[in-house]
Design a protein around this nucleic acid. Structure first.
Lengths: 189, 189
DNA sequence: GTCTATAAAGCGATAGAC
DNA sequence: GTCTATCGCTTTATAGAC
């Protein structure tokens, strides 16, 4: 199964980690060549438009993963509670219990957002929408479902910031528990 | 009142905006010279250690502002509810209703955190602690106060991310309202 | 205190051999 | 598909005149 010839999909995860750690502006081609083990020639063969294309592919990859592993289950699980609980599990797993930041969130904060405005907007919109839909099916009213969905998605992002600031994954896992509890009962009017 | 000779304090706010917009890695000295109107000579006169010192001074400036305008009122207001409500007002104002990101949060997400770990840690720890203390005085139990404080501080950070991703300050102001409501009554055990 | 000139290093990107 | 060599530019930082 070992291939000598690299495929683009082999290095996308590595690129993801680099962009997460350094941000878009801070990710240098020299670090990318080192950590992927590929020369610039190979990199530009796979990504003719350079760093911008690398980031775009990584963003699309993340969006695809969430679409398949989180958003679709949220919408299709027969029991919406199962879909929601699965979302929290997948989230904790994907973000390594708060040790790994959200690439899309990181890009959203500085001027990198403007480069990738569409993907970034779509990612969070899809998440919020899928969760609100599941909450509706759980019996939440339209407004409560939307509000709680926004609350949970923002809460996850904020917990990642806070956990990293304190260098304490416990901050993240505690936040997840509270957020999950909030999806069990609709808030008072 | 017009001074020709610049003071360091005159340009700190400008530096703050640049770092907020570009992040630490993305903020270039050429943009800093342009937007401050000062040459490199002047900049290195005020900040001998260059960009790193500029960022440090801005971080300290932000921390001081919050200490004075948010954390102290939280702890000293006779009526803790007044202090908490003031915190939300000051927060909405400081972050321009979600149009301005949190510098400390932005720095916390990527490897910039490691450069300024202490200030970043202290900022969020102080915020959480001051809010928890006010909630205690409002009648929250110790655990409820801590949990709600973490919830609110994380919620604010997440709302900034989400609002920027959607390019919609409404996301932020709605979140603030929900978070504020959550400080009025202790959550069920 | 402010400026211009300059240095040295690193950047993203390209060319061309293999 | 992968590499090395190189281009042109920008970067942070320094030196020294005023």
């Amino acid at each position: 199964m070992a291939r000598k010839i690299a495929e683009r999909s082999d290095i996308v995860p590595v690129l993801g980690e680099i962009f997460r750690e350094r941000g878009f502006a801070g990710a240098s081609l020299s670090e990318i060549t080192q950590r992927t083990g590929l020369g610039k020639g190979s990199l530009y063969h796979f990504f003719p438009d350079g760093k911008e294309e690398m980031a775009k592919v990584v963003l699309d990859d993340v969006a695809d993963w969430f679409e398949t592993n989180v958003f679709v289950p949220l919408g299709t699980a027969e029991d919406p509670e199962v879909g929601i609980d699965h979302m929290f599990k997948a989230t904790v797993s994907f973000f390594h219990s708060g040790r790994r930041v959200c690439l899309v969130g990181t890009f959203a904060l500085d001027d990198t957002r403007d480069r990738f405005a569409e993907v970034i907007h779509a990612y969070f919109a899809a998440w919020t929408k899928a969760l609100a839909s599941a909450l509706r099916r759980r019996g939440f009213g339209i407004k409560a479902a939307r509000a709680t969905a926004e609350d949970v998605v923002a809460g996850i992002q904020g917990a990642l910031v806070l956990a990293r600031s304190q260098d304490d994954p416990g901050v993240f896992t505690r936040a997840i528990k509270r957020l999950q509890a909030r999806t069990k009962t609709a808030p008072a009017a």
